[in-house]
């Protein structure tokens, strides 16, 4: 494994983590807390949207984020040849 490519792997990993954590913060702290009042004015079926994000939606997104990270990182591990053989 060349040194440069490992640094690139790490930089890409940090970027991926940053993107996923931004989504994590937006759905929970953004939609679920800070913007809950304006979003609550919108009803989606039987749910006020802000309330839905706070008590349901953010949790679904969290689960998806972890599985997305697993998938993308496993692919990246193979690409940079650092995966477990």
């Amino acid at each position: 494994m060349k040194k440069k490519s490992f640094q690139e792997y790490w930089a890409k990993n940090i970027r991926l983590i940053a993107i996923l954590l931004i989504i994590w913060a937006v759905v929970s702290y953004g939609f679920g807390i800070i913007f809950v009042k304006p979003l609550n004015a919108i009803w989606m079926g039987g749910f006020p949207l802000g309330f839905w994000f706070a008590q349901q939606g953010s949790i679904y997104v969290f689960v998806l984020l972890i599985f997305a990270y697993c998938f993308l990182m496993n692919r990246m591990d193979r690409e940079y040849d650092v995966d477990e053989k």
Binding site: I17, L21, F62, L65, I66
Partner: peptide, 8 residues
């Protein structure tokens, strides 16, 4: 939400 931090 803490599990996202844990996993990442």
């Amino acid at each position: 939400g803490g599990y996202v931090l844990l996993a990442l």
